[in-house]
């Protein structure tokens, strides 16, 4: 596709954004990400194992910051304070790169976004010069508030993280799309290609996914499928679907029939 999306100061060529978790190994990670065609790739920040083999392969050797736009996340953070510290460590780790994915998640089994902590962290990070792509619930009012704070993209969930249930509330996603000017990217909940297409047909600027690709039987093939699904959904959105009708409407002319 030739179109691009603008997220803050970043121009992205692909509307598919992908994670790097849950793959069998780094080789598979690299191949799947390449097959996805994504240019934004998420990563996590974790304590270094002090006893590790210094030659152990590193994620950044496979996913080069020169080739991909890295998007460090704050996964695992349950407070605004921890999320802000993690973003500052990520910025140092990536030599000043200021694009981050903010997610402050509840400890419940839903992994639902803690919007109170998320709003607080978003304010601090925007003030500190970060470009914040924010994971949030599909609440239209919270989405508006995150945009007002200055987040460069708002990323409502389609369904709980890792659930693969597909978009559970397309009406809320549609409402968020109608109200926001910054890109709206569905983050989490996609299970298979058609789920991604549904999000794109609604008019979302993009979809961020991890588990749907990484936990497919063949992640590299699924990455390719997702790439096509995203492009297909976007094209259908731009083309504008036909109106729904309650009854049949013949495709072939009803005149000129032989007698």
């Amino acid at each position: 596709m030739t179109d691009t999306i603008q997220v803050g100061s970043y121009t992205l060529k692909s509307r598919l954004l992908v994670g790097t978790g849950k793959y069998r190994d780094l080789d598979e990670t690299g191949l799947a990400i390449e097959a996805s065609g994504a240019d934004v790739v998420t990563m996590a920040v974790r304590r270094t194992n002090l006893g590790q083999n210094p030659n152990e392969p590193n994620l950044l050797d496979v996913i080069s910051p020169d080739r991909y736009t890295l998007l460090p996340n704050t996964a695992g953070c349950h407070t605004a304070d921890d999320a802000v510290r993690t973003c500052r460590l990520a910025r140092e780790l990536l030599d000043g790169h200021n694009l981050v994915k903010l997610e402050v998640i509840s400890k419940s089994r839903t992994l639902y976004p803690d919007v109170v902590e998320t709003l607080s962290a978003a304010r601090t990070l925007v003030d500190d010069g970060f470009e914040v792509m924010v994971y949030t619930s599909d609440d239209p009012l919270i989405a508006l508030e995150l945009e007002a704070i200055g987040c460069v993209a708002v990323m409502p969930l389609g369904a709980p993280i890792g659930s693969g249930l597909g978009l559970q509330n397309p009406y809320n996603i549609r409402e968020i799309l109608d109200n926001l000017k910054v890109p709206v990217i569905v983050d989490a909940g996609v299970g298979t290609a058609s789920d991604a297409t549904v999000a794109m047909e609604l008019g979302c600027e993009g979809v961020l996914m991890n588990t749907a690709i990484a936990q497919a039987k063949d992640p590299i093939k699924m990455a390719h499928a997702m790439r096509l699904a995203i492009e297909s959904g976007r094209l259908a959105y731009e083309a504008g679907r036909m109106p729904r009708k309650r009854y049949a409407d013949a495709s072939s002319p009803e005149t000129g029939l032989i007698e």
Binding site: G19, G21, M43, A44, R46, T48, L70, L93, L94, T211
Partner: peptide
């Protein structure tokens, strides 16, 4: 001290 590196994540 906290010493961190990048790992896979979504």
């Amino acid at each position: 001290l906290e010493i961190v590196h990048a790992i896979g994540g979504g």
